[in-house]
Amino acid sequence: MTSTARIIPATRRKGFLYWARDTGWRHLIGLVMLVFAAFPLLYVLSASLNPSGTLVGSNDLFRTIDFGNYVRLFQLPQQPFAAWFLNTMIIGSVAALGTVFLGALAAYAFSRMRFTGRRVGLLTLLLVQMFPQLLGVVAIFLLLTGIGEIFPAIGIGTQTGLILVYLGGALGVNTYLMYGFFNTVPVSIDEAAKIDGASHARIFFTIILRLVAPILAVVGLLSFIGSTSEFVIASIVLTDPQTQTLAVGLYQFVSQETSRNWTIFSAGAVLAALPVVALFLYLQKYIIGGLTAGAVK
């Protein structure tokens, strides 16, 4: 809000009361949210540390602390967790990068250029994704089988094919998010560069993209989470255990009522959440780097 330089002396003078009013209450809210957001996940963590437990059979959390499930995860020949992990990282990263790239291109066009069909185009992007995809899986299967007959490298069973399907969703809500952000970058910057003789591609890649880094990071993160947790399409496309993602692989531990293994599944889910957290930590400096507009001027 106000510049920090002015706050600090004030804090010293007014002491705790001021701190409480300025920052303290934020911690209070933080703590409440900590409980609300994290509490249900404690069950998952507790189950993952229990060699033979159920997920929600008991409120007696953390009865045992045993890392056996985590060790076992890496020892199952039919469930190659390490491979799943790697696949997820690759598919998630490539899909996220591709989504950011395609989305940014489109958002730039919508934000900076005027052409017929622009309004309708924007609206269509939104509407297409609202269609209830009851038959999405059947259609995607038919499509990838057909494509696979011509290009086996991107047919059913390939990770490339799956990534391409994910890229199909690159334009859409994300485009809007970026579009809104692009609009906040003053057009004068483009104009100035244009006068200096920069090509449109150069302006886009070297100037604009840098200025909108926060939203690129947000979209990248959202798309990474989206494609790593996607289950339905991935389970149709990826058939060989060695190529599967965490979402598909892990689900096999609990899909059958009579042979559910919640404890191993929970351990897998905990590990699977780590990359998301790590990516968020890494991107945080871009997302909250802030003061972008100020830096421009």
Partner: peptide
Amino acid sequence: LVTKEFGAIRDDFITQAPTGN
């Protein structure tokens, strides 16, 4: 051998078998 989640086998089979694939 194609590994699938047990619960999904029935429905996937019903939708995929008629396509000949």
